[in-house]
Design a protein around this nucleic acid. Structure first.
Lengths: 217, 217
DNA sequence: GTGGAACGCTACGATACCGTAGCGTAGTGG
DNA sequence: CCACTACGCTACGGTATCGTAGCGTTCCAC
């Protein structure tokens, strides 16, 4: 986003509340507009990346007037960020009873996400932007946390159950589990088949590894 | 690069040879211009990413006139690609005698690259572009191959020596070794300390793992 | 119904780039 | 010393965006 100044994410609505007196309900028109725009925005984002993202194009595709878009988002950057944030895709934390099962479930989930064109093609754009723009760095942090958290949780549970040594290095294990998947999707561009997932999980979990003790061997 | 058509990478020089009658030597002025431009281009690329890359800015910084730049590269895209290709950074293939030693050396190299601001901040940009532009996909493939090849070679040598089972799954091992490093640099943004490298290598190599047999356990 | 908010439309001004033209200057090689 | 080539400079034409203004229209809420 070379052309636009960051600008505060805060947006002063024209004048009035837009929420009816009762609860936090909003005018149906507002809701429709916002939804249509955000949906289109996300779609466009996955097609063209952060840099190819254009308000004019969003307006064209969504059928929502450009002026209306600017009534809801103060700046292009704000809309991009907002659309990006929709990716957060909170993963569910599985509970199969065993660490192996939990990890397998999570890896399968992630692999599925990586297979879904949209998600997987937007993320590199965000990573790139995050390298330079602090606002994107925040978004990135959120996404990152979103998919590492479930793994961390099942690892913690396993440690509590005694399935993992207390010295287990969670952070390294997570990198060991997710890294190879990401690597294949974005770098070597090889398929993420079940066999690969199984191998990754087996190697990291059996080399239970990731404890610092293992280094003495 | 939303604004510019790809265009052939071929560039018809104005008219004359630019190379003297003798060998492939070129006019010193040409050499200076090309060098200055490419250097500046790469620098700018790592600062602003592929999308923030501008011919005008390259001209400003390098001191080389925009018209001159266009005399050497037919289009913005061509210059970007050319600058990107400079990253290829051919890694050396170590030969410490043992698989462990070789892998450790390579991981240290990669970690060093990932620590170098320039290289590491350009790559996400290329990955992003490669998602949509076939020309960048080529560049990306080259880079990717460039850093996976040494690993593949030391693994092959180890297999020949009998240090690895013949059934070893090289591709998975490479993903298992490089993935975690990349993951830490671009996703979790944790430091790549020696301990981490050691753990990664130990886990993947000890779980020699990556053979399909290991799955029966 | 009716008032007011939200929307759509057209048109702008301002920038930033791309890529090219034309012309004069400087440096290279013989 | 001379021709030839590469270079620098200024100025364009063209395009794509951003973000805003003004005004009429539609739709929600009461």
């Amino acid at each position: 986003m070379p052309r636009t100044a960051p600008g505060s994410a805060e947006h002063a609505r024209p004048s009035a509340p837009a929420t009816t007196a009762s609860g936090g309900e909003v005018d149906g028109r507002v809701r429709r507009s916002r939804d249509r725009v955000l949906t289109t925005a996300f779609e466009l984002l996955s097609e063209s990346g952060v840099s190819g993202f254009t308000i004019d194009e969003v307006a064209r595709r969504s059928g929502v007037a450009k002026t209306t878009i600017y009534r809801h988002w103060p700046t292009r950057a704000a809309l991009v960020i907002d659309a990006c944030s929709r990716i957060t895709a909170e993963q569910q934390v599985p509970d199969t009873g065993s660490l192996d099962g939990d990890v397998a479930a999570i890896l399968a989930d992630i692999a599925h996400l990586l297979g879904a064109a949209r998600w997987a093609s937007v993320l590199p754009s965000i990573v790139d932007a995050a390298e330079r723009d602090p606002e994107f760095a925040d978004v990135h942090r959120g996404i990152q946390h979103g998919h590492a958290a479930p793994l961390r949780e099942v690892l913690q549970r396993a440690a509590d159950r005694g399935e993992l040594p207390a010295t287990a290095n969670f952070s390294s294990m997570i990198a060991g589990l997710l890294g190879p998947l990401f690597y294949r999707r974005w770098f070597s561009r090889e398929p993420l088949d079940d066999q690969f997932l199984t191998i990754v999980a087996a190697v990291v979990l059996s080399g239970q590894g990731a404890t610092d003790d293992a280094l003495q061997a």
